[in-house]
Write a protein that binds this DNA or RNA. Sequence first.
RNA 1: GGUGGGUUGGCCGAGAGGCGAGGCAACGGACUGCAAAUCCGUUUACACGGGUUCAAAUCCCGUACCCACCUCCA
Length: 468
Amino acid sequence: MTLHLYDSASRELRPLDPVVPGRVGIYHCGLTVQGPPHIGHIRKELVFDVLRRWLERSGLEVTIIANVTDIDDKILAKGRERGESWFAVAYENERALHAAYEVLGCRPPTYEPRATGHVPEMIEMIEALIERGHAYPATDGSGDVYFDVRSWPDYGELSNQRIDDMQAAPDAPADGKRDPRDFALWKGRKDDEPESASWPTPWGRGRPGWHLECSAMAAKYLGTEFDIHGGGLDLRFPHHENELAQSRAAGQAFARVWMHNAMLNLGNSKMSKSVGNTLTVAEVVKRVPAIALRYYLIAAHYRSIIEFSEQSLAEAATAFERIEGFCLRAAELVGAGEPGDVPADFAAAMDDDLSVPAALAVLQATIGEGNRLVADGASVALADTLASARAMLDVLGLDPLTWATQGESSATADALGQLVDALVAARAEAKAAKDWNRADELRDQLTAAGIELEDTPSGTRWNLKGGH
RNA sequence: GGUGGGUUGGCCGAGAGGCGAGGCAACGGACUGCAAAUCCGUUUACACGGGUUCAAAUCCCGUACCCACCUCCA
């Protein structure tokens, strides 16, 4: 079976049929870097990270392009408000995004083109659209250039809407547009905007319209026809609809499959800055191990809304501890080994539109089997089970044994290890002397410091609770 | 007004006509000096009202509520 994905354009499950056999080109809309990423933003990154890992494990060569929108109204406004340059704001938040990728174990995209670095490509595209009669410079002298939605009969095909049914934007009539739904390909520079935020074009100085950058950059890095275009469901209209119209109107085939992930809600509405219900990745990772946050955000199907709650986050962290506990215990018995093959059921689940919940059920069954084997000590069967579990965890980016062992320096870790080992040894002596009060006192002391003890037939294991 | 999606047990979360996904929590048991961890077992479901069918959480009709988009948004 090959991977089937739900295509939001045709609204059906479709088999992946790469433009170039053996290779997959994916474009997903990155962030407008106007603030640090919140956990809703990062959900999208995780979806595509898992997709990428699964495709690679299936033997495909994957190219992922994720744009960085480093200029827009909000970035300019924030710069003004803070008395900083717009590009300082954009870059600061781009670095925060990369930090979030890293801490959650997302492998970086193949490339992350910035909008401001692709003005020539955009100009070429606008020229092509004007020549073909699908775009026109604003009649009011603003320097804007608009896409003419009435000139493109398929406009609305992605979101299944007809132009006449759409609510007109409230500010539309004034802008020198032929139709209120026409959207900006290019925005003329306004007097109060910094000179550095504009680029020369045949239509005067200005800056990119949001939608155009993705069309231009996708074509540059993936070609005029590519496999998968993705992003959050909130981008389907107008952003993706407009991208599709532009690119097709310019004569390109564009994306074969459109993939949209559902939102992460907090308090019954989408997490977003304008609602004010955001939790940044940096904040949440202070409360719960990053790997547990990753588990939480991945565990639900990507097309299901996640209603965020502290309780469900905490439960996810507990659930993941069982998985982690098995890997650590098994690795102590038989060595970490290498990830092996993924069970057929797991593969079938992943091939079915990335059904991570079903895939996790397979993983949980493997963990249960593994824990039974652990009780009997080292065995070939245990080594095989661990290899299988690790293969599945690797696809999900959740393998505790390869998860970045960042954190404390080894000197700190050594010092901690010696101290804990000494206390564990003291407890063992107390136990041997049947001095249960002393033994429990030592255990309580360690627990209070965040060290968990686990007595096994072969001695006492310990680990730092939430130690990632 | 238009376009999509949703409502499942104490909680999270799959499934899309017939065998009770899975996890968390709870309870009982095994193990333990006692715990923890682990294993075994048990308990609680398909928003509401109709209909189709031998059989409906799943299909159809209606109702209620929720989310997203039509304006910047992952």
